[in-house]
Design a protein around this nucleic acid. Structure first.
Lengths: 141, 141
DNA sequence: CTTGACCTTCCCGTGACTGGAAGCCCTATA
DNA sequence: TATAGGGCTTCCAGTCACGGGAAGGTCAAG
């Protein structure tokens, strides 16, 4: 198979496949004309990589997972450990984003969004964020 | 003020402050010896930037927000629009991460995590993800 | 023999910095 | 006065995971 074939079948752009070769994730053969020649096993790996990446695993995680994938003597515990570490990172990111979302939503909720210049969003960015709002109806400042 | 002072007071690394000057977010004065000389207004801007960045606004968003911050004739609606667009991006990212989390949690839940090589996580990455599990008790492969 | 699709390598750009090298400036102390 | 230290400067390279595009080789069809 040429690169376009495996690109179409794995769902990865040809550019990405070349990159994966460059960083040593795959090692396709070469035809006499210099073209990459992909085996079924290469296609399997690329599909694997495509899916692992879509779950947010880093390239280094993918390298590890791919090694485990190819190691018939692996322990599923090793795979699970990588996955759990990644789950933890995902949870962390979600928590960060939710904190941002809450703080920003709070500011947005306080902003009239009209033609006047008074803006609690800018005020919040100026003076230090959420502080549980409650600027008071009298609004100091 | 020298760069270290504004770094300490704004919470931004000196490197970042130099970078922000390079991309035109701030324009500190220069002393005779070539050192950057920061005014109070520069410090305000840096603090503003630090907070906006911590809410996840992109540098380009920050540029826009900073311009609005400095424009006394601004309409709060313009600020709110930027903030709402960012809120939408945050919500989108959270949704993506949650989808990853759900898919991965599903796989992890099915994995024994012991010394044996059989691993539903690797199987899931190989064959195409969630498919509501149910590999059948006979377990092909 | 030309067209057009495919393939190759190489280099630059992305976002938002971070690290480090090489070298100037300033203050304090011996 | 010499020196040690800390701070400041610029510039270059690296990060992560690619994507865009140039310049040029290859192949099958008409």
């Amino acid at each position: 198979m040429n690169i376009k074939d495996v690109a179409d079948r794995s769902g990865l752009p040809a550019k990405t496949i070349r990159y994966y070769e460059e960083i040593g994730l795959i090692r396709p053969l070469r035809a006499a004309n210099g073209y990459r020649s992909f085996r079924e096993s290469d296609l399997h790996k690329l599909t694997f990589l495509s899916r692992a990446r879509s779950l947010g695993f880093s390239i280094e995680d993918c390298r590890t997972l791919l090694a485990l994938y190819e190691d018939r003597a692996r322990a599923s515990a090793d795979v699970k450990a990588v996955a759990n570490a990644h789950l933890a990172r995902i949870a962390e990111k979600i928590a960060e984003l939710r904190a941002m979302e809450a703080a920003l939503r709070h500011l947005v909720g306080a902003c009239a969004g009209d033609a006047r210049p008074d803006c609690p969003i800018l005020a919040g960015l100026e003076t230090g964020l959420p502080q549980t709002g409650q600027t008071g109806s009298g609004g100091t400042r």
